[in-house]
Computed example of a mutant assay.
Amino acid sequence: MPRLPRLNLIDIPQHIVQVGHNNLPCFFDGEDYQFYLISLRNAADQYNVDVHAYVLLPNMVQIIATPRVPNGIPSMMQSLGRRYVQYVNHRYKRSGTLWAGRYKSSLIDSDAYLLTCYRYVELRPMYLGLAESLGDYPWSSFNHHASVVQSEVITDHRLYLQLGETPQERAEAYRRLFRYSFDRRLLEYIAETIKLGHVLGGDVFKEKIEQIANQRVRPLKRGRPRKSENETLAGPGEPSSRKIDEDESVAGHEKVNGEVDNKKAGEIAAMES
């Protein structure tokens, strides 16, 4: 299934993923991780982007962020990527690319999926066997959300702030979100949306995005368009009882193919409710 055009809408959170070239490492020691986080904070400030969650893995970066100005995230990622590649090439006396092309991104229906995406991102180190507990991994936003240790990189989203009146209450409520395992289908759904650049959300949210962006965000339904009732009644080789001109036929084709099968998304969204 092809990727849809990338969308960058102000005040809509995005899940961002950037992978090392050929899945090779892009961080080699603690100093590299520290430099990337400092660069992320500076680029986010410069281009007016709120970073809500992140994880830095040996060969991958995942970030959840909200742009406050048009093209905030593309500008931030371009600046961040360029600066970090220059740093790595200079430090390790190397040349060439570090990342596997452009970053991938997916818009997030914050009310339905934002805190779920926090968990998805921050659980990566444990799923990959990089830490025995989330608090042991220093290169993610988990300790910011689950304790009173504050990160200079993070700007808290309203949904996180609504977890409690005080930092301690919010941290305790956030830790409770990790008591239950992720449903496998939900993990696959989130991974698929970021891989294909699809919107993570239900029909109402996707329709809202299509209206704002004035473009389609849902993939076309596969298969040939369904025949009309008149065409079905007509015998082989016979014309239908109603003449359909060329323009009307094309419009009908687009309408049928514009319908979206939301069975999978609906099942997974139901698990979140």
Rank of each mutant, 00 (worst) to 15 (best):
D109Y: 03
L196E: 12
Y33C: 07
V88G: 01
I209Y: 00
E248R: 14
A234G: 10
G197N: 06
S181I: 00
Q168W: 03
L4T: 03
V49I: 08
L7S: 04
V55C: 13
S106I: 09
R82A: 11
R222V: 09
Y113G: 00
A100D: 13
R184E: 15
S133R: 15
L220V: 11
P236E: 11
T232D: 00
I212K: 11
N59R: 12
Q14T: 09
R185A: 12
L37F: 03
A53F: 02
T193Y: 04
V85Y: 04
D247R: 12
A191M: 00
Y118M: 00
V17M: 14
A234W: 01
L220A: 14
S79C: 08
V121H: 01
A191P: 10
E132S: 13
T97A: 15
R82L: 04
Y118N: 05
F27L: 11
N22I: 05
P25A: 07
R222D: 14
L24W: 08
Y180H: 06
D245C: 01
D29F: 07
Q62N: 06
Y47K: 02
L57G: 01
I190W: 03
I73Y: 07
S39R: 07
K243H: 08
Y120S: 01
E231Y: 05
V55L: 03
Q46Y: 02
Y47I: 01
Q78Y: 06
G202T: 02
M77S: 06
G30P: 01
I244C: 02
R242L: 01
A173E: 03
R175C: 13
K263A: 08
F182S: 07
K208G: 12
V88C: 08
S249N: 13
D136F: 01
E207C: 08
P58Y: 05
Y113M: 09
G81L: 03
A146L: 07
L107Q: 09
N42F: 01
T66C: 05
S75W: 00
L9S: 03
L37Y: 04
T155D: 05
E172D: 12
L107E: 11
G164A: 13
R222H: 11
D136S: 15
L128S: 09
F27I: 10
K208M: 11
R222K: 14
P219H: 09
N22A: 12
P239E: 13
Y174S: 02
G101P: 13
